[in-house]
């Protein structure tokens, strides 16, 4: 009997959407190993996030309230998760592969002496082993791994799993933990990028720009197209490195992993580390004046044209 503990992600009492495919992963892991799914929410006055997480097929939803969880800090999260994992007898502890999950879950793993699987895209039982798949080498290769520890910690690539169907809610159990606030680390600030557009990782349509745009101003025309389509705007690492776009827009191995219905790459050559972040998109469009750009090798529709001509035309005709 296994217990899969999902550490939910919330911001200001609102459940982050990345939690749902993580519950999807947990249900797949529970089905493979004959177990149940327990969801844990940490927060301060954030029981609404726990309520929101209670309708997706978990057997139990636990909520821990504490002032030290008002703002996210790994040093505060990790001991609480460790305590709950032990008390529920977790065999797997998982979290979405967001910057938050990637930050605290390895810490949890070390404290539990648990093997750690990063960025799982599949889980199944094969010949008595629980086998996880995870992309490595910029998405060039997939490794099949298994864990030899009693507990395993897993971050979940959310684009690889579906959100479970919404159903009847279970009642949220408010529990307490003995761990307090860290004394050697403190949260100072979170500077949120203000935008009316959908988050990159949730958007149905993503318009991404590359270094070929040659300036930050040129991203303005991508934003106009994005506004017309209700799309998010992203960038390649080269564009971020050149200072044309904020780091939070970066799509790729070192940035965000996305899988929208429609991805439009503008003046992006298609470096392997960018492709690693977007090649799970359903439909890929590439606009680039260089017909040899590698992005055309993975695109469904390619247009060989100068971005400064094609993008305004596209915007005006939609």
């Amino acid at each position: 009997m296994s217990t899969i503990l999902v550490v939910a992600e919330q911001l200001g009492g609102e459940l982050k959407s990345a939690t749902l495919p993580t519950i999807g992963f947990a249900k797949q892991a529970a089905a493979a190993t004959g177990g149940e799914v327990v969801v844990l929410v940490l927060g301060s006055g954030a029981s609404g996030a726990a309520e929101a997480a209670s309708r997706f097929g978990a057997s139990r939803v636990l909520y821990v309230d504490g002032a030290q969880y008002a703002d996210y800090l790994a040093e505060n999260y990790a001991p609480a998760v460790v305590e709950v994992a032990k008390s529920v007898g977790a065999t797997v502890v998982c979290a979405p592969s967001t910057t938050t999950g990637k930050d605290f879950l390895p810490r949890v793993a070390a404290l539990l002496d648990a093997g750690f699987v990063s960025d799982a895209i599949d889980v199944a039982e094969v010949d008595g082993d629980v086998v996880y798949k995870r992309p490595i080498w910029s998405g060039n290769l997939i490794a099949r791994v298994t864990s030899h520890t009693d507990i395993t910690a897993v971050t979940v690539r959310t684009t690889a799993f579906e959100a479970p169907a919404e159903g009847a809610a279970v009642s949220v159990e408010t529990i307490s933990v003995s761990s307090g606030a860290a004394t050697n680390a403190a949260f100072v600030s979170f500077d949120q990028v203000k935008t009316d557009r959908p988050p990159l990782t949730d958007a149905d349509v993503v318009i991404a720009g590359g270094r070929g745009l040659k300036s930050g101003e040129a991203f303005g025309m991508l934003e106009e197209l994005a506004d017309k389509l209700g799309a998010a705007v992203g960038a390649s690492r080269a564009a971020v490195d050149s200072g044309y776009a904020p780091n939070d827009w970066q799509i790729g191995q070192t940035g965000k992993i996305i899988a929208p219905n429609l991805y439009i790459g503008v003046a992006i050559s298609g470096a392997i580390q960018h492709l690693a972040g977007m090649k799970a998109s359903k439909v890929i469009v590439a606009i680039n004046k260089d017909p040899e750009a590698p992005i055309f090798q993975v695109s469904d529709f390619g247009l060989v044209e100068d971005a400064f001509k094609a993008v305004p035309e596209l915007t005006s005709k939609l």
């Binding site: 910057t99 938050t100 050697n184 680390a185 600030s189 979170f190 990028v193 990782t201």
Partner: peptide, 13 residues
């Protein structure tokens, strides 16, 4: 720190 949705500062001893 580079985090989803923006940046965050932490002060560590």
């Amino acid at each position: 720190r580079e985090v989803d949705g923006g940046t965050s500062d932490v002060k560590l001893t």
